[in-house]
Design a protein around this nucleic acid. Structure first.
Lengths: 131, 131, 131, 131
DNA sequence: GTGGTCTAGACCACC
DNA sequence: GTGGTCTAGACCACG
């Protein structure tokens, strides 16, 4: 696993990192039970304060994406969604609309967007059954 | 135009407003040359600090979505993208991947996502020609 | 609102505080939309590092109990449960069993426990409708 | 007796084990004078560091739930509470309130909680006489 | 060795 | 003024 942090970005470091881990998990690059680098390791590698890494791991744990085992390390969790169907649908609609808004402003056509989405979607790990 | 601000949201007010204006323009609800309310009007209507409104207008103008004509008011700009094809494409790919990442974690299937996107896309105003 | 921190307890400070706030909200002592003391205020009052307070607020926000509005302060959120009926039921059963285990070891009779629970339950703010 | 350790839980192993033993005793599944597996046996069976098992036994002995008889093994102790009535009552009230706090936040009604508690209580071994 | 907690103090974004 | 982010460094719990 390689993570890239851009300290000159306005996006907070911890958010860049959570996003990258979230995406790797969604793509299946990081699979369940994979051990992530330890807080200290990663903090050295990325030249970032250990607290910041710890924060990332804590936050992803609360989201159910990671799984920390005291004394052992941090691992990718098995996927599960505990949210109500209703809430999940609402969030998805919101995401879709925000995404479409930006796509329109970038000047793309509907077809271009849908086509690209279809292509990229193949690179992700989708649920086959509803939870 | 009606804007709705939820002060009990953790999303900053200025961001809620920019998002709503951006989305209205993308949907065609707000069309080019439409005059927006003045900073003072809108700040009274939404009971929001005028500075916050001014900030919103400034930001959207910087994005090329609005147009301030001194002494006349603020107007919706004609769509134009000053970005190169390459940059726009890169940005879109980034957006798509972020969107897909979140959709996966919400536990949806690929088909559900693509289908919803297709539906919602019909409500937006798309470019028919490349700029 | 009065919060009491016992720095000599083995229970982490941030956990003592989250527990007290959670309980106050559950009892209705802290009602929705109530503003909590600012991070700086509370950190002075309790002689605790501001970061620790901030952590408490962040965590309770993620649980949906609080609601922070940047620049304005932290408020008690309106109650809502976004978890699946199934997950909620599982958690409740687990809580009940843990509770009963401890009650047995304390040497109480079933009747004593149920009776006390009934009494104390009256002091809490219960849902009237399922969400 | 079967103990199940979930190494992918954020709950420390030693705590999972103490909890399971405590609960088994409270349910009467483990009865007084029952011999528990030796530290070595159990550590092999559960694939857990022997130190961790030893720690569990030590802690439960301190609580008066187990009894180590040197050379013979570890046994379930006869129930006895050395705490005064007052202390035990205070502790129970604290437990009840914590339990109710969580139940409220899970979005249950008072009746649902009391009813479930009544059901589960039947599976435990209660004192019939005050000690 | 692992992660969790806490402190101290800096700087930024928001209203 | 508010909270959010980040750093530096200490100490504890866990296996």
């Amino acid at each position: 696993m390689k993570f890239l942090i851009d300290t000159s970005s306005r996006v907070p470091i911890y958010r860049q990192l959570t996003q990258q881990i979230r995406e790797s998990v969604a793509r299946g690059t990081l699979r369940p039970e994979t051990k992530l680098p330890s807080v200290r390791e990663l903090s050295k590698e990325l030249v970032i304060n250990p607290n910041t890494i710890a924060r990332v791991y804590t936050e992803l744990e609360r989201e159910g994406i990671l799984n920390t085992r005291p004394g052992l390390g941090v691992f990718v969790a098995h996927p599960k969604s505990e949210l109500t169907k209703k809430v999940r649908k609402e969030r998805l609609v919101e995401l879709v609309d925000q995404f479409l808004t930006e796509a329109v402003h970038l000047g793309f056509s509907s077809n271009e967007v849908i086509s690209l989405l279809g292509q990229r979607a193949e690179q992700f790990q989708w649920m086959t059954v509803e939870t």
